[in-house]
């Protein structure tokens, strides 16, 4: 018979082997909750999973109209249609922002479990991170059709290349980053509800900060603009270095290389991906520790 001790957890006891075993023991709960999340989102809706496609598509159409007709964005290579360029980045970003928003409020919306039953709390923010992968998958299929259409009709715009094999790695980085931030945000949001407000505009801010509507090559222009404006030598490089640690940059540029390829995106941007991975891991590990340290008060502050 297993013996269980309940007492105040000390800060250095944050994660033990037992905790991992317990997480594994509750895997059925994780699956059930994921299933619930997936089932519930589109219950009593006519279009159902169609929404997973419509949301990023509509956004893509708006951006394409906005940035090709109204505010013309200078592209590196005119062979890639703006629509493709934009949608390839929007699909992973939409996953990130919807997972982050859902995960941040997850502890609050599941408050009734937290105050009534015990289970490893880490499961709760993890559920939307996995559940939103379903929407992501559907959007990826649509993206696939779109890429195939351009591949067939406009030779040279999209090229199938071997880098596509790195896609799972990029998705993994995306998931780690999303989960890491969500751990921080959800643990804070249950005590400070302000986070629910912050997260919506933070997601929007990140969308414009990441090279989604504008090509990555424009970064140089921006940083050099800052350098000449401030008059500090070498600040452009400094900014570019910091920027490369923003995990979405490596993921998005990686997605473009893997899916568009061709002469516009010939090589995987490994330096960006490496820095992004380091950052994601850092956020994830610190997130787990932060979450665990806050865990014991969830039931009291919820």
């Amino acid at each position: 018979m297993s013996e269980l001790k309940i007492k105040k957890r000390l800060s250095w006891q944050l994660f033990s082997k037992q905790d991992f075993l317990e997480l594994f023991k509750f895997r059925d709960l994780l699956f059930t909750l994921i299933k619930r999340d997936v089932q519930v989102v589109y219950k009593q809706s006519v279009i159902g999973f169609g929404w997973a496609v419509i949301k990023p598509m509509v956004q893509m159409i708006i951006f394409t109209f906005l940035f090709t007709y109204i505010a013309k964005v200078q592209m590196d290579d005119d062979s890639v249609p703006y629509m493709v360029f934009n949608f390839v980045a929007l699909v992973p970003f939409t996953y990130f922002s919807s997972a982050l928003t859902a995960s941040t409020s997850s502890l609050i919306s599941n408050e009734s479990f937290i105050t009534k039953v015990y289970f490893p709390r880490l499961i709760i923010p993890l559920v939307p991170i996995i559940a939103k992968l379903v929407d992501f998958g559907i959007a990826m299929v649509v993206l696939g059709f779109m890429l195939f259409y351009y591949y067939q009709t406009q030779p040279g715009s999209v090229e199938i290349n071997g880098n596509i094999l790195f896609l799972p790695l990029l998705i993994l980085i995306l998931i780690m980053f999303s989960f890491g931030i969500s751990l921080w945000f959800s643990a804070l949001a249950i005590q400070y509800r302000d986070l629910n407000q912050i997260v919506t505009f933070l997601a929007q801010f990140m969308m414009y900060m990441a090279p989604i509507v504008w090509p990555f090559s424009r970064l140089k222009g921006i940083t050099q603009g800052i350098e000449s404006w401030s008059g500090i030598d070498g600040i452009a490089n400094y900014f570019e270095k910091i920027y490369s640690f923003f995990p979405l940059v490596g993921v998005i540029e990686g997605f473009r290389t893997a899916l568009i390829g061709g002469k516009a995106y010939p090589n995987m941007p490994w330096d960006l991906i490496l820095n992004g991975t380091i950052m994601s891991l850092l956020i994830l590990v610190s997130g787990i520790y932060f979450f665990r340290s806050k865990e014991s008060i969830f039931a009291d502050v919820a």
Partner: peptide, 23 residues
């Protein structure tokens, strides 16, 4: 006892599978 909230002091030792029905 059902591990929903942590004690401030002291400890509890439990031997066996617990199910709690608080609701």
């Amino acid at each position: 006892l059902s591990r929903i909230t942590e004690p401030t002091n002291g400890e509890v030792t439990i031997n066996g599978r617990v199910a709690s029905l608080l609701e």
